[in-house]
Nucleic acid binder design. Structure first.
Lengths: 159, 159
DNA sequence: GTATTGCTGAACACCTTGCCCAGCGAATGC
DNA sequence: GCATTCGCTGGGCAAGGTGTTCAGCAATAC
């Protein structure tokens, strides 16, 4: 487990310029093409790189409102609630957290008014006891991984 | 704004098999290659597709613990707190939410014990009044976009 | 000392990409 | 009604990348 410096540089380069090919990467990194290919194969089969899925902006799709909802679940209703939430397209993400029956989910909606509809659909399910919602106003740090990758590569280097 | 059915099929196909090229996509979708290229160009310049960055799994990097922290910020300290949090690699994401001075951030750590170190670093900053943390136990719905894309394409189709 | 592992540099055929073009149907504007 | 514009089609072209394999070599492990 873990990545070395070359792995780190590959991931960072890939994150900054996803369009570069293997050959171009090998040129930029100063290593052989086969090396980059082997590293990439290893990183993907390792599970370090899950995939290269397109990063879609919900706002551009017509869903500019994001919110986080904390749900309190009745004991034993977890599986049902999960299935219910998974069936709602506006639920982008769902986590179960510490504490009895607590879940945290990320929602999107077409507008603040539409958010009410989404929340009603989300909480309108037997097994959800209580819900509290926080609407996102700004996103100063969008989901990122580069700093963590660099730190992981650095720490490995000191070994 | 918005996407039509072909756009939706392109995004979904791309999300399921990110490695396919433009030519292969055109074959699978039954349209001309130039069409797929034009749509992709439009989707990326539209901002619907932000990029194709590698999807890195923090757990495989050695950070298997995820948590969400809600922070209460002292009035006027917002910008400073943002800069501080942005400088912490373990902060993967930061949102400001409704309510006075509230922020929500996603953290990762090497272990539960390490999480304490991360939290100390995060909250050890003037301007953060209070923090409450929820540790993620399970992730029944990982970050997803396909259902929303399909819904957006469907709704557009009915126009 | 020997085997193993990982990187290098090169070669090969194959295929995709990026770009161009003319034609055509449908929607739009006059 | 008629002309224009727009998007999709299907084709062609040169250029370059990909997937794969190979031998050589250095560092490491046994």
């Amino acid at each position: 487990m873990g990545i070395d410096q070359l792995d780190g540089r590959i991931i960072v380069l890939l994150a900054r310029e996803p369009r570069v090919g293997v050959l171009e990467m090998s040129r930029r990194l100063g290593v052989a093409r086969g090396t980059v290919q082997a590293r990439l194969d290893r990183l993907t089969s390792n599970g370090v790189i899950r995939g290269f899925g397109p990063d879609v902006d919900p706002a551009a799709l017509g869903y500019p409102v994001t919110a986080f909802a904390t749900l309190q679940i009745r004991q034993g209703q977890g599986p049902d609630v999960r299935a219910h939430l998974a069936s709602v397209p506006e639920v982008l993400e769902l986590h179960t957290t510490t504490g009895t029956g607590d879940m945290l989910c990320r929602l999107v909606a077409r507008s603040n008014a539409d958010l009410q509809r989404v929340i009603d659909r989300v909480v309108g399910f037997d097994g959800i006891v209580r819900a509290s919602t926080a609407i996102v106003m700004e996103n100063p740090v969008p989901l990122r991984i580069i700093p963590l990758v660099e730190q992981a590569a650095e720490e490995r280097a000191r070994t």
